[in-house]
Structure formats: structure tokens, C-alpha cells
Nucleic acid binder design. Structure first.
Lengths: 387, 387
DNA sequence: AACAATTCATTGACACGCGCAAAGAAATCA
DNA sequence: TGATTTCTTTGCGCGTGTCAATGAATTGTT
């Protein structure tokens, strides 16, 4: 494949991707390299046309004005695919992780060959239609080792100990990375989103389960036992209901999808879905509001715990019921924020809390972002040498 | 100072310090370097006498037997000093962080000049008596930035925004590092202790406050806002007592020193100290046992939360009341372990829990370990260039 | 208008760190 | 004694990045 970027080149390119147009001197300051090093580092990128100079900005001060460098993001494209229990979401992204095209489809089956063939067809088709596709990323929930592409266990699909990366790499013509879905979402956020380039960042997703991924000191962290960020089983209420994990009062038992629907059923509203509950709350239903507020408080405790233990600069919370930034769907948000502020200790409360609705596109974009990240960290592509 | 170790040399030396006598081939496997690289990396160390070959072991298999390399740990010594609210604890350590000498003294005052002069005198004296002292480490509780030696805020001493590293470096003849006390303890543990070389490791200290430090993917992590590991304010009991932080049911409000003594007072045993409570429990006092068991359960919840969120390989728990490894002081230990096992989710329960009594020596040794760690990471020594 | 001052950018020389691969060394086994 | 195996060293070379000197483009000054 591409002749593996040198450390400096990767650092500079990563900075350009995250920060947008930047002058050489700024890059030198940001990356800690010398100006000469910058020129050297970008020279292969400029030669290949991946990076170009934009018009020199007039500059206010004295001296020679700086000329900005900009990634020609559309020169190399990525396909990102997120696999859920029932379907695929795929996006075509440029290097700066902007979405150029989007595609949803149902799974034809859940067994690995069927799913992987379906993914491969999609990747191959986009590779044909867009010759600039260079990499692909695949994300799915469960225990994934991105360095080997091995899937340990994926509960939704029922897969176990499967070399997904190697298999898929053999079916398409571009290198492939496989990642856990929440970590992929986090990677996307860190590459191009609210938390772009943040020193530390946490991502929490509320859905059927509660997911969490962490980035510390610029790196996405992986737990020793494959378990990490099990925020769903943090204690939120000692007198709370029993959780499927056997304990009492877990965040998930109070705020998970099942918990919310169960509480609604207990109040005489059986057979709903989460979006319906949210709609009811917006329409003024006291039951729906109370249930979602209770869930929000539990989540707030979980987030505060996360903030107290990690001190991230930003926590991004996503989920169907979470609500948008400006009140459009703000059903849970106030109670989340209130409880978070109450239980965050000291300067952990300075942690920025970003709430946003969950879109399938973002999940898939995260997978594409992992492909870009793998390019920048010269991590192993599946099946290939460690480049 | 010493001409800064190359990355490989530092890696190899670090491995030798942590693992003890090791052959070149083993080192190559452990560090990922080639055998040739190992020979090159250690050659300056062998030349300087810091590393020596030990007698070749007979070796069971065929082929040329491996000759082990060993750090001559007593060739370079470190002074480690821990400052508490009322006193200093200092140790003299060798490169493998073995304690050669120990010293306690009272503080003559709490103002920075007095304390730093007292620390400097101690360091200077040991430098005179032992010409091989090469580095010094200082640890104190509070918000410390080890990269600059700046102390943001130290509640026990009442210091605020003080360039402790630079000041102390100007008073002694060896380079100095300053660290937060719990992170220093963790560093010591990772350098030479139960968690030596662990991929991920957490340290929790129970005392007047509850402290916590984390090591992930081989690196001690620092929070964005200086706050990290505030495990003391994790929710342990929704119906619990009010904590000084304003919340209800924090671990610290149930298991902190003040909380334990208060509960004992409430049961008609006022004016005790923690060691006295432990002694009472060992002597069979039901009150003491129940109070300590309750504290243990709260701590167990805190540790389980930590394990769920981080998935560390090992958690080390220390404190006066915690108890030793084999029941000598096992008062809290059973309830800690029981509650931990209950609330640790999935494979987070595989996390090894090490309980051990707290010794002042270990604190100071941690400070010395930070000095060794700084040597290995070629981090900036205070006041000096980033070497 | 010419020149200084300032800031940005490039270039060549240099060093060093490390992988690669071949050779050398020290043991066991036949 | 020689073949085999395993550990260790050495010579070679490339890639990478710093350093310092030079060049380029602008603003400010006399």
C-alpha cells in the first residue's frame, strides 16, 4: 500500500486534517517540530498533491506573510460501514471525514459470510464508482481488537472469535480496519467534531445498552480485559430496580432503553418505542417526562462519575432520547445536566458536556475516521504487515 | 546532566530495572527491538558500568546459553521525599527502587521557604554522604504538574501556584522532579512492586481523604483539569450521609477517616484514631467491625466503579485500615472484596485486587521512583531543558 | 526610493538511531 | 570431531529530523 507515512509526516497531516488550513510556522509550533522539519515532512504530501498551498493571507503584522497549507481532502476517500443487528449503514467520506454519500440497507442474514459479503459488495461498488477510495473502516458493537481485526465477541450479531479484518481484507481491494463501534464514534469525534484534537474526551451512547469509550492524552484507550467504560453499571440509585447484571440500581437499569419502556409500561403505556416516548414527552405527557427525567438523572450520575474519575475535557453524550443542542428535542438534557453538575466534584464540573441526537450517519462516519486514523498512526492494516 | 538516554536505551534500561536480570534475547522480545538493537542500546550502559553481565546460566536447552544482564542498581542513587502536613519522610533508593536508608522529621513550619529549605538540607546531606546520589524526587498531595514542577494547589500545606520544582532545583546539586503523591506512589508500584510493568494499574489510598491515580497503556495519566481519580466522590449509597462536597452517599463520606471516626463516636466511642479502631476490631469489638465493614463495602463499590470504567489489570488499595495480604490486619479486606466482586461487571471482575497496609516509606519511595521514571522517559527535569 | 527590520520558508550538511543480514561465539547432540 | 542450535556482535545503509545559514516577501523608516 501507500509507502507508510513517517512519524513527522503523519503528525503534520493529522494536524492539517483536524485544524484545517494552517501555515508552516503554526504547524511547527503545534507539532513541536522545527520549521525545516515541517517543510521536509510535507514535501511528499505536496508532491503527491494531497496538500496544497492556499492563497497567502494578507496578514496583519510585519514580515513575510504566511501561506496556509490545506489538505485536498477529496483526493483520498474512505468508506465507513457500521453493522447493526439488522442493517448496514455506510458512508463515503473525504480525508477530513466529511460525508459525501450515505447508504442504508437491511442485513440479508446474521451469519458472518453473509454479512461480510454484503459489506464487501458495498465497498467494492463504491470503489468502482469513486476511484479515489483508498481505505475502508468497519465498526460493530462488542469486543474488537483493532490491531488484529479480530472480533472476540459481538452479542448483537452472535459472532465469536472471528478474524473479521482478515476475512474482509481478502474480499475487497482496499485496506480495512475494524473497530468497536463506540470507539469508532469517539475517533470520529476526535478527528472532526466537537472534541477535535482534544487532550481527553469521552463518548457515551444511550441505546439498547449504554456504551462508552475514552480518549486520554490524545489516545483512545483499551481496557486490559476488553472491558472498559462500563458506565452502564455504575451505581445510580441504591434503591433502584434490579439490573440484568444481577445488581441493583445500575445506570442501565434506570436509563437503558428497556428500562425506560418498562417504566412507561408500568404507568399504563405499554408497547412503545423510545422515539414515541420522546414524542409523548414533547407533547406534554407527564408520565413520559417523569420517566425520561429519571433516566436523565441516572445518566447524569454516570457522567459525573466518569468526569470525577477521568477529568476529560469534553464528554459527548448521544442517544435517541438525549436531545439536541438547542432544545429541539431537549427532553432528557436538563435533568442530565442538573444531576451532572450536582455530582461532579471540584473542577471536574468544568468538563464540557455536549448532548446530541444520535444519527446512524455518525456511527458509520466513525468507522471511516478509524481508517483515516490508521493511516496517521501507521497502525497495521488487517492482514498486512505493521507498516 | 547525563547525556539523555536514547529511546531504545531507555526502554531497555526500564525493562531491566523492572524485570531484573534478563538476557539480550529476552529483552529483544520484550521491547520489540532486534537483537542487534539491544546490543547497541545497552552498550553505553555496559561501558559506564551501569549494566553488567552476570554469570551465564547453565541453560536447559541446546545452543549457546544466554548471558543475563543486570542493572548495577547501587551505581546511581535517588533521594525521595514525601511532604505531609506535619512532616517529611525521606528515603534513599537505588535504581531498582530498593530502600537503602530512611529518615523522618517534623516540619519546622508550613511556609514554602521553610519546607523547601528543610527538604534541600536533607537532599544535600545525603548527597554528601553518598556521592552516588544522582536525582531527587519530591511528592506532595494536591495539584502538581510534573512537567513543569509547578504546584497549583496543595490543600494540606496551603500552597498555591508555586514553582516548587524550579525553587528546589536551585537549592540542591541534583536534578529534581515534583509529583503528586498518589501518582508517585503509583509510579513506584509500577516500577517495582506488585504491578511492575503492568499494562494498566490503579492505586487507591484511604486516609484523611481518598486518593486515586491511574496508569493506562503503560502511562500514568493526568486529567485535563488537574482532577482525576476522584473516586472518593463516587456514589456508594443513595441513602448515605452527607459528604463535605455537598452531596449524599459519597465513598469518602462512608469510608474516609473522618467518617469512620464519626460513626464510632455515634456508637459511643468518641475520640479514637483509625489505628485504635482497627485494634478494637481485631480485639473483637462488634461496633468497630461493623463500622469498618461498612466502610469496606463503600470502598468496594468505588473500586468496582473504577474497574468497570477502566478495566485495569490490577488495583492496589492501601490505607491504615485496609489490612495486609494475609489476614494480619484483615479487617476491611473481606467486605471490600465481597462488594467489589458483586459490582464488578463481566470481565472487569478479573481485575486483581491487592490490599496492603500503608507505610510512609512507600510514599517516599514513590517520589524516588518518579526520579527514576523521569530518567527513563527523558522528561524535563525542573529548571533544565527537556533533555 | 532605498534600506532596515521582521517574519516565513527552504536548503545542505550532519548525526544518530535503528533495522537488516551476515558472521562469530558457545553450548549440545550425534 | 563436526553438525546443529541458539545467542550475540558487527558492518552497512537508510530514513529522519535538527541545526544553521541562506533566501524570500512583506512592513516600517529616513
Amino acid at each position: 500500500m501507500a509507502p507508510a507515512l513517517s512519524p513527522s509526516t503523519a503528525r503534520v497531516l493529522g494536524t492539517l486534517i483536524r485544524e484545517g488550513p494552517t501555515s508552516r510556522m503554526q504547524l511547527a509550533r503545534m507539532t513541536g517540530l522545527t520549521p525545516g522539519g515541517i517543510t521536509r515532512a510535507i514535501s511528499p504530501l505536496v508532491d503527491s498533491g494531497l496538500v496544497r498551498e492556499t492563497a497567502a493571507r494578507p496578514a496583519g503584522g510585519r514580515g513575510r506573510p504566511a501561506t496556509a497549507l490545506e489538505v485536498q481532502a477529496d483526493r483520498e476517500l474512505q468508506v465507513g460501514v457500521k453493522v447493526t443487528a439488522t442493517g448496514l449503514v455506510a458512508v463515503l467520506c473525504d480525508l477530513r471525514c466529511r460525508v459525501l454519500a450515505e447508504h442504508h440497507e437491511e442485513l440479508r442474514g446474521q451469519d458472518p459470510p453473509t454479512v461480510l459479503e454484503q459489506v464487501a459488495e458495498l465497498v467494492r461498488r463504491w470503489c468502482r464508482e469513486h476511484p479515489r477510495v483508498r481505505r475502508a473502516g468497519l465498526s460493530l458493537s462488542g469486543d474488537v481488537d483493532p490491531s488484529t481485526g479480530q472480533v472476540g465477541y459481538s452479542p448483537f450479531l452472535g459472532w465469536r472469535d472471528l478474524p473479521v479484518g482478515r476475512l474482509l481484507a481478502g474480499m475487497v481491494d482496499v485496506p480495512v480496519v475494524v473497530e468497536n463501534d463506540v470507539r469508532a464514534l469517539l475517533t470520529g469525534e476526535h478527528m472532526a467534531g466537537t472534541g477535535a484534537g482534544a487532550h481527553s474526551l469521552a463518548m457515551v451512547t444511550i441505546g439498547a445498552g449504554i456504551g462508552c469509550a475514552l480518549l486520554l492524552e490524545g489516545r483512545v484507550v483499551h481496557g486490559s480485559h476488553g472491558v472498559l467504560g462500563e458506565i452502564g453499571h455504575v451505581l445510580a440509585d441504591s434503591a433502584g430496580p434490579r439490573c440484568h447484571c444481577g445488581n441493583v440500581g445500575c445506570v442501565e437499569a434506570l436509563a437503558g432503553e428497556a428500562a425506560v419502556l418498562e417504566q412507561m409500561a408500568g404507568r399504563g403505556h405499554p408497547g412503545l418505542t423510545v422515539p414515541e416516548v420522546v414524542a409523548m414527552a414533547r407533547a406534554g405527557s407527564a408520565d413520559a417526562r417523569e420517566v425520561l427525567a429519571g433516566a436523565g438523572r441516572a445518566i447524569g450520575i454516570g457522567l459525573a462519575t466518569l468526569a470525577n474519575l477521568f477529568g476529560p475535557a469534553v464528554i459527548v453524550l448521544t442517544g435517541e432520547a438525549v436531545g439536541g443542542p438547542d432544545g429541539d428535542y431537549d427532553v432528557m438534557a436538563p435533568s442530565v445536566r442538573e444531576e451532572f453538575a450536582r455530582r461532579a466534584f471540584g473542577s471536574a464540573a468544568d468538563c464540557e458536556l455536549v448532548l446530541r441526537p444520535l444519527t446512524f450517519t455518525d456511527w458509520a462516519r466513525g468507522a471511516a475516521a478509524c481508517a483515516v486514523a490508521a493511516l496517521l498512526t501507521s497502525r497495521a492494516w488487517n492482514g498486512e504487515a505493521a507498516g
